[in-house]
Design a protein around this nucleic acid. Structure first.
Lengths: 192, 192
DNA sequence: ACAATACAAGACCAGGAGTCTCGTAATGTC
DNA sequence: GACATTACGAGACTCCTGGTCTTGTATTGT
């Protein structure tokens, strides 16, 4: 994502500056929202030259994307092991918690960038969303009562689950809580 | 939405200019996308002074919102009458068609505005989304096999259906087609 | 010492939202 | 018809943001 740090002559890149910028960006996003998290503001708060931002990332969208990945280091990976009957619900719940904590604002910001820039929308989808979809569809297959589930149905279920999540992330009309997680994992069991 | 036209002294407002602006905005949104649909561009193409835009609407978000409502005059209302077994699927399908035709770009634009401006997000939700949710929950209640469905479940189902729709509107990874509509209406029947 | 790069600070440019001004057109009132 | 009042098209203007460029200094390998 960020521009590579190939060793050569001259002063070396300072990795700690890169993470300082990412942390600052996340903090501003959380505290002041998407619109206030301007490049100048991030540079100012991080006490960093604007050029340094553009040395590490080629534009705002790339920086925000990496902020998301950096933030998601507490990674929500598929732990298919464990009690099979609640594995799916637990998985969904873990994602919800991450969204409720920090990721929500960042995810929304990236959607906004994607709406303004179709090319970025594709990048965002392939480098982040698609991977989550893969994981979820594995979980669904494992969780489903009927084994030979055609992929069409699994795809629809993935869109249903993440769709409901995104819908509540974007409009914030209802919380992402255990009730929804239970309802969604229940839904999967009902499909044959 | 648009600023009222109270009669009084002076030259009267020209309603045809208002609709000309809305049509131009929709056209630019469809043909060039959200980012290109700037206020200056709309004014230029519509052959209208920028001040006229701001006389009718107080900002870009308001204009886009009214463009959406104007575009949605081919209104997707609940026609609960008709074959009860396909009424829900038909309803969903009609919304999908409207989105696929014009509304999709406008809806996405309004989401982007909402992400940048929380206050507008609320306005968008209450004046547009909430009404669609009302209609859909009526349809669900009518469609459901079990009559006494607690409102909690209906709300979740609404979020599931519109969630899946929005998810595909935003990322465009899969089409909004009859298959999804059938799957979703089927899902409702399976919930008890 | 020297070349090369990174860094902070900040000037600079392009473009968009929103405001303001100007000259003109359309209305009601006298 | 004269007048006050408002709408209109055109476009200049301010302010802000994304992104670039410059300058002076710091840090590396040779």
């Amino acid at each position: 994502m960020s521009i590579k740090n190939i060793p050569g002559p001259g002063r070396p890149r300072d990795e700690s500056i890169r993470t300082k910028i990412l942390k600052t960006a996340i903090m501003i996003l959380k505290r002041r929202g998407y619109k206030q998290a301007t490049m100048s503001e991030i540079a100012l708060v991080a006490q960093v030259g604007k050029q340094t931002l553009y040395r590490w990332w080629k534009n705002r969208a790339e920086l925000l994307m990496e902020a998301l990945l950096y933030n998601a280091e507490e990674n929500v990976d598929a732990r298919i092991a464990g009690d099979g009957s609640t594995a799916l619900k637990d998985f969904i719940m873990r994602i919800f918690e991450s969204v409720n904590k920090d990721a929500g604002v960042i995810l929304k910001s990236l959607v906004a960038e994607g709406i303004a820039d179709k090319k970025f929308s594709r990048i965002f989808f392939t480098t982040f969303i698609a991977k989550r979809q893969q994981t979820l569809s594995m979980m669904i297959r494992a969780h489903a009562s009927l084994p030979e589930k055609e992929s069409e149905t699994v795809c629809a279920l993935v869109d249903v689950i993440f769709g409901a999540m995104w819908y509540r992330i974007i409009f914030e009309h209802r919380p992402l809580d255990g009730k929804l997680a239970a309802f969604l994992s229940d839904l999967v069991k009902r499909v044959h």
